[in-house]
Design a protein around this nucleic acid. Sequence first.
DNA 1: CGTGTTTTTGAAAATAGTCAAGGATAGTGG
DNA 2: CCACTATCCTTGACTATTTTCAAAAACACG
Lengths: 259, 259
Amino acid sequence: MDATVALPRSNPLILRLRYGADLDAGDRAMLADLSRGRRTLEPQQDIVRAGDRAAGVHLVLEGYAFRYKLINDGQRQILGLLLPGDFCDLQSIVLGPSDHYIAALTACTVADIPQERVDALVFRDSRLARALWWATLVDESILREWLASMGQRSADKRIAHLFCELLLRQQLVGAAGERECPLPLTQPMLADILGITTIHVSRILRDLRLAGLIQLKDRRLLVPDVARLRAFCDFDPTYLHLVRMPDLGAAEDVVRIGP
Amino acid sequence: MDATVALPRSNPLILRLRYGADLDAGDRAMLADLSRGRRTLEPQQDIVRAGDRAAGVHLVLEGYAFRYKLINDGQRQILGLLLPGDFCDLQSIVLGPSDHYIAALTACTVADIPQERVDALVFRDSRLARALWWATLVDESILREWLASMGQRSADKRIAHLFCELLLRQQLVGAAGERECPLPLTQPMLADILGITTIHVSRILRDLRLAGLIQLKDRRLLVPDVARLRAFCDFDPTYLHLVRMPDLGAAEDVVRIGP
DNA sequence: CGTGTTTTTGAAAATAGTCAAGGATAGTGG
DNA sequence: CCACTATCCTTGACTATTTTCAAAAACACG
């Protein structure tokens, strides 16, 4: 990491919450302050284990993490991907012991935020509380879209939809270009996201490549024609709730998110 | 709060929130007060439409409702079932326009709660805010379990798991016996919950019946041996978060929830 | 350079979907 | 009370999708 301290400008949490509420400089300072106690994790290292009674909350600052559950005899379902600016387990302060695992997907840095500091934000300051609540509700909304995808979309559209989502979500925190982004997911992991086998993932990715919809190289995804991929899988970003609510103030610094 | 006044004992919201926080009589009175302006809905009638900018929030008091999304050319994925005591759209106060539909499943009565009253609870009173937040987080937890079920469980275990969940959730609000409960879901609806076809649902229900795991009659589910059904589908109710957190006070009136 | 994981492919088997049709059920209006 | 309609439920035969099993090629890393 480079020597000149972490700038609020590039703080992924602040970037993420822009759509959740109209934060002033003081709010942003408080959020930036949450990112202080950072820690680096190896890929595959657990951040939260099912049953853990958390002493605090974790915030992803760099890299990817993911939620998962283990069903039956060790089958893994990945329940969500956590990008920079995403809280891992904000729910634990209210819900108690986690019902699922969270692990680093890539090498990543997370902030460990002590319980009291979160309590102070969530239960006392209503504007920041609202912003944080917004973030967890967007997570829930993504979960609903994944469930709908799993139930109703064919496997190829399911992958395409996931790629559209990841491209967009990474753009939001400045981690992606217009048409390409990091994609540190192996095929076994994609399989555990999509609920299909690794072998099937391989075949479908080949088909998408042959159809000219995507290119994969060096753990990066390139989408030659974003509009075409979106049309293919019927991608509608409404569920990411990136439109600021009118009564929350002027949207001075809203980022453009698409074509 | 004295015993003569309106039914806090049978108020489904109060029953539901027992696990979310330790509410005193005043809290319970406020919650009971939310159930005042009630309205009756026909089956299939929409409560919330995707895109709606809600003027308030809806709470199910009697009957079932359900969330759903429409994908592509009208395929429906059911995203959750709402039982008495469940909020339909608490998220809308923070998230803005809904990204999905909510409709009555059976005839049901809902309370329409104006925005300001919810704001007053959610953003000012921290104990009730916590209880309400807990409820939305349990919803999210159920959603995660459904996603895991969809991705990793075979169709027969998926149905069995859903039945275990419904039996238990209805017991929590006093709507079910030890081994049986209402099941107002048609097979086409089950299909849209489970992401399989109606025909397949029919065949699997027959198999479960033949295996002696369930009985269906008059829109009711009877489970002859709950432990056996739970074992069959690996049902673990942890995800419903029915264990009161230790630091929230004594669990004087916690209900037993299974063997 | 070897070792382990990831990716790819082929062929067989299992699971789930499609098409078609008949029976059951509930509600409607005569 | 009965026909009439619509939806729901069930079954059979066929098809498509996805998994399983097996094996080899590509790649990453110490």
